Amino acid sequence: MSTIPALQGEVVIDTASIRRRARRRFLRGLWRRALSVVLLVLIWQVIALFMEPTIVPSPGTVFAQMARNLGEGNTYQQLGVTMVRVVGGMLIAVCAGIAIGLIMGLSKLGEDLLDTWVLIFFTIPAIVYGILCILWFGLNDLAAIIAVGVGATPAIAINIWQGTKAIDRDLIHMGKAFRFSRRSILFRVVVPQLIPYILAALRYALGLSWKIVTIVELLGLSSGVGYTLNYWFGNFDMVQVLAWTLLFTVALLIAEFAILKPVEARLTRWRPAAQFQRGA
């Protein structure tokens, strides 16, 4: 059986080799992250040796308290309440932020009308949003959700705005030349190029949303992680404060590695092949 020779200049991409390299990079990065955590805990332990337990308790004491907290049903209730508020606020922020960012990036008129206001809202401290929403909506979940939505929207809008300005305009002109509809150009040309910026905006907004909702809960709500941290702060219990802070951090890491990372890997699975083709 005869074989057809490859065309001159044709690039053959070994996808299996690319996947193996990607897997090796993932495992190497995982080990480095684990090592950084171990080093941080060791530094914490050394500092605890020279400080009073009421000021800097040892890692073992904090981890043990965190384990005890995980054995209590109230812990999951408080975390769940905070997560519902964060997700609700982020849904508002993502929808509004992407829409505003696209308007600013694709329209000079939209940019002139909105950029100043986006920057103003971005510079307002999160605690101001919390106070205003509590005064407007009362001590309830709606106040926390609106505060998160309003506070995180500018961050997402700025990321999408800058990402839209950086996309390849030639592809948009090409789409117009082939008589693509505006909807097709938006979803087939613009949005795929914005995926890295959208994911970066989501990461930033997630961390910001946790901070805002914690502030709102600390200011006046009677449930959530922020309320619990304020309670233990009032009792001067540093072990519980750090234990709840670690729980808070673990929840963020789970959201990052169990949700955002897999979504990013799926939506950008074409990028390794493209980098290989460019000789990266």
Results as ranks from 00 to 15, higher is better:
S2W: 12
S2L: 15
S2Y: 13
T3M: 13
T3N: 15
I4R: 14
P5Q: 11
A6Q: 13
L7W: 06
L7R: 10
L7S: 14
G9Y: 08
E10F: 03
D14I: 05
S17A: 13
R20A: 12
R21H: 05
R21I: 07
R24L: 14
R25I: 05
F26G: 06
F26T: 08
L27R: 07
L30D: 00
A34K: 06
L35E: 11
S36Q: 02
V41G: 02
A48V: 00
A48D: 05
L49W: 11
L49V: 11
F50C: 00
P53S: 05
V56G: 04
P57W: 02
G60V: 10
G60A: 14
F63H: 10
Q65T: 07
G71A: 05
N74S: 14
Y76C: 06
Q78R: 15
M83P: 03
V84S: 09
R85E: 08
G88L: 03
L91M: 11
I92N: 09
V94E: 13
C95S: 15
A96T: 09
I98P: 09
A99L: 12
I100D: 02
L102D: 00
S107D: 07
G110Y: 02
T116H: 11
W117C: 08
F121K: 10
F121T: 01
F122S: 09
F122V: 14
I124V: 13
P125D: 02
A126E: 13
V128T: 12
Y129F: 15
L135P: 00
W136R: 03
G138W: 05
G138V: 06
L139K: 01
L142C: 03
A143I: 03
V148K: 14
V150P: 10
G151P: 04
I156C: 00
W161I: 01
T164P: 13
A166L: 02
D168R: 02
R169Y: 10
I172K: 07
H173D: 10
K176I: 02
K176L: 04
A177L: 11
F180H: 11
F180T: 09
S184P: 07
V189K: 08
Y197F: 13
Y197P: 03
A200R: 01
L202E: 00
Y204K: 10
A205R: 01
G207A: 01
S209H: 06
I215F: 13
L218Y: 15
L219P: 02
L221K: 05
G224R: 01
V225W: 12
Y227V: 03
T228I: 06
Y231M: 07
F233S: 11
F236H: 04
V239A: 05
V239I: 10
L246G: 01
T249A: 14
T249G: 15
V250I: 12
I254C: 15
A255W: 09
E256W: 04
F257T: 07
F257K: 07
F257W: 08
I259R: 09
P262Q: 01
V263I: 12
V263A: 15
A265E: 15
A265T: 08
A265I: 06
A265K: 13
T268K: 10
